[in-house]
């Protein structure tokens, strides 16, 4: 095969200078100011999660006699009915949201993509079985199914201490993964089937590449763009689902600072007297999810304008 015969896409890839490789980044910053704002807010949330003890010297779980204090210099966001500092809880709450969100998305993207590759390549019975299973799981109403799963998986899940995950978190992650993996599988399977018929796959096959090699070396890299987009849309959704479950009282362990859990339970009786307990955790949650969605939207527009509005 001569150089002239190579497809234009290949040419583009080899001719592209290192500077052009980051062209999309500069374009992103220029064309998507909202995305940049999103990135800034995400950075703040991530910083809160990592550096929580540096930001506040208060213990988010520590009881004190200063109950239901309104926001002041000492307690920026006021205190709860147990005298816990709301600011500390909001800052530490970022940890649960990010941990659960990230873990869910990583597991379900890897799982969904691997299954999609399997279905797309083995086809036949495997494809039918996997697609059917996905269809069944998707047909359950999401929050209700997560609620049922979270309570019935049982308590005997491992505590993944080395990942910093508590038992409650592992349960929530498992429940949300069961919801998200089939959804991601369905998106990815469509793309795998599309790629399978592409010319470059045929070319690879002609050259003698094994099916396995085609799958991992040729198709998988081509799914990367879609994977980034799916990550950016499912991360905020996973954070919302975690907080919804925590709000319903079946999230992470009681007492753990979690934005959703802090809005639920006994605390609700005190919201009218002490609205700051309700306002700040919800605000933190909304702003974080908004930031991720802004970035996701902008990324999608930049990476693949064809997908606009479809995911």
């Amino acid at each position: 095969m001569t150089a002239q015969a190579a497809s234009p896409t290949l040419d583009f890839e080899y001719v592209m200078s290192p500077r052009r490789r980051f062209a999309w980044l500069t374009r992103f910053i220029r064309q998507q100011p909202l995305g940049v704002i999103g990135v800034v807010f995400i950075a703040i949330v991530v910083f809160c999660a990592i550096a929580a003890p540096l930001i506040t010297n208060k213990d988010p779980q520590g009881f004190s006699s200063d109950v239901l204090q309104s926001p002041s210099g000492d307690h920026w966001f006021g205190t709860t009915r147990e005298g816990k500092d709301v600011f500390a809880r909001v800052v530490y709450g970022a940890r649960v949201s990010l941990r659960v969100g990230l873990a869910t998305v990583v597991v379900s993207i890897i799982g969904g993509t691997a299954l999609a590759l399997l279905a797309g390549f083995l086809r036949g019975v495997v494809d039918i079985l996997l697609s059917r299973a996905a269809e069944i799981l998707i047909a359950f109403p999401a929050i209700l199914f997560a609620l049922t799963l979270r309570t019935s998986i049982g308590k005997d899940v491992p505590e993944l201490g080395w990942l910093g995950l508590s038992k409650g978190e592992v349960l929530v992650i498992l429940a949300i993964c069961v919801l998200y993996t089939p959804l991601i599988f369905r998106i990815m399977r469509g793309s795998v089937l599309e790629q399978r018929g592409a010319q470059y796959v045929e070319a690879a096959r002609v050259v003698g590449a094994s099916e396995f090699r085609i799958m991992l070396r040729h198709i998988l890299p081509n799914l990367a763009g879609l994977m980034i987009i799916v990550t950016s849309t499912s991360l905020p959704a996973a954070i919302l689902t975690e907080s919804s479950l925590s709000f319903l009282g079946v999230g992470v362990e009681p007492g753990t600072p979690s934005w959703g859990a802090d809005l639920s339970g006994k605390a609700r009786e005190f919201f009218v007297r002490a609205p700051w307990i309700a306002i700040f955790p919800g605000l933190a949650l909304s702003v974080s999810v908004l930031a991720f969605n802004l970035v996701g939207d902008s990324l999608r527009d930049t990476l693949d304008p064809r997908l606009r509005g479809r995911l």
Binding site: L34, L263, A278, G282, S286
Partner: peptide
């Protein structure tokens, strides 16, 4: 567009909570 992104980002249990809390205050 910004309002619609905000609309899908703000959790419904928070808006519901605010709806019950703020008018009461």
């Amino acid at each position: 567009r910004v309002s619609t992104i905000a609309g899908i980002s703000i959790p419904n249990f928070w808006t519901a909570t605010l709806l019950l809390t703020l008018p009461a205050i």
